[in-house]
Design a protein around this nucleic acid. Structure first.
Lengths: 243, 243
DNA sequence: TTAAGTATACTTGTATACAAGTATTATAAC
DNA sequence: GTTATAATACTTGTATACAAGTATACTTAA
């Protein structure tokens, strides 16, 4: 049987999380992984039954997912939007916009502590790779970019990031899990990109930053295909399970 | 007695709105108007009692306000953040970022319909001024910018806008109400700016767009002082009421 | 008077109940 | 067979109840 798991979202990231958050995280993963196809109409009652919780946390979860633009709350039922190639490109438009803005601020402040912090995270990423831990690697990858954004102390940029983060995280998780199996070599390049990014921040080299930013994103664009692979794999797994 | 109203948020904008939305809109107005001071700790039960609703819609409202960054949900109680000068500048950072991005897309597409739509909204704004309707003017002002953003069909830019919009709207409402009384002349300049903006979109003149964008924002920066006036006025009103 | 423990009055998160509204289906009339 | 009407099985939004946790205040012992 193909590898299938009860829950796609790492359960150890959910300690101290409310039932609403759990439902939101898991639904998000299933939607982005394509297990729940776009166009599907979600019913509060059905989800509540599926997850063995009451409607209260489910309502909360649906509100969260609606604010992330992966479902649309209508008068009756929530319609799944999901992530198409278009949405993924749009997310990277936003990331590029934010991170460019952030860099413009970074060149004007002391980045010593930030560079230290980023180096630490990069080391963590290396360890995660050595131990084949795709989830941990994804976590550190997301944390890397969040740390940069937090450094400029801009609450509304952080707000945008917080809105984008859950979807990003799910997307990265899914694609990294595939790549750890299929394209292990990719990670040397990913690490180099991040090293370059740190270098750009350290030297406040705008050109280098733009270069590494785009390399990072071009690389990530490649991830889209891994999301499709992920969706296909998971779809097969579900089929076999239904036999 | 100074002019005080039971609700700051226009009630006619709340037809068909849920109790949760009503509470969110009103709390938002009170926070931004400074009636509820930053640092205040909000209690679900107390708010529920104040608005004569149950905790369910209040919880919903607090979640919304938290996602807008004007309150912070903590383990016990929600702490009011509010809008300081810093936050207002940050909001305009984001708007500048978004609208610049949007314009870059607009120059590449047919904007005929958009220009028509914007002209219509501008006419509406003029009518609102003639009839001294600050709320209607604010509504059209917000709609003007939303219409521009919607034109490029970018769901994640729209997502950011949707996150920003409620706070913007409240802020504009409060400052326009003051300006309608104190600085009626301002509006000819505001209208000119919007006309310039339309012109920039029509001719796809990047330089003109940047100019009108900045004029608009510089003008809006001036609004900050009107927010303080608004806060002072309302504070006085409350004091007198408490006598 | 101070320190530690205990009671109490809050808090949040979840479950459940219910009213009001909306699609869908079945039934009746033509 | 088609259309209009009524019954039904859903839906959402709100109220309420309760369990579990947390801060505050109050006791009690030193």
């Amino acid at each position: 049987m193909a590898e299938t798991r009860e829950f796609l979202y790492p359960s150890k990231w959910l300690t101290r999380a409310s039932a609403g958050d759990r439902v939101a995280c898991e639904l998000r993963m299933r939607i982005i992984a394509g297990i729940i196809e776009s166009g599907t109409i979600l019913s509060e009652n059905k989800i509540a039954a599926d997850f063995s919780v009451s409607r209260s946390p489910v309502r909360e979860a649906l509100k969260i997912l609606a604010s992330e633009n992966i479902i649309r709350l209508e008068r009756m039922g929530a319609v799944v939007i999901g992530l198409t190639e278009k949405e993924i490109e749009e997310i990277y438009d936003v990331r590029l916009l934010i991170e460019s803005f952030v860099f413009e601020r970074l060149v004007r402040i002391d980045t010593h502590d930030l560079v230290m912090e980023l180096s630490k995270i990069l080391e963590m990423m290396k360890v995660a790779i050595r131990y084949g831990d795709a989830d941990e690697f994804s976590y550190q990858d997301v944390l890397f970019h969040e740390t940069i954004i937090r450094a400029i102390n801009h609450s509304y940029m952080l707000m945008i990031w917080n809105n984008l983060k859950p979807v990003m995280e799910s997307f990265i998780l899914l694609s990294m899990r595939i790549r750890f199996k299929e394209k292990y070599d990719d990670f040397t390049r990913i690490l180099e990109n991040h090293q370059l990014y740190i270098e750009a921040i350290k030297t406040k080299d705008r050109a280098l930053m733009i270069k590494s930013l785009h390399q990072n994103f071009d690389d990530v664009q490649g991830k889209v295909e891994y999301l499709w692979m992920s969706q296909q794999l998971l779809a097969k797994g579900v089929e076999q399970e239904n036999d």
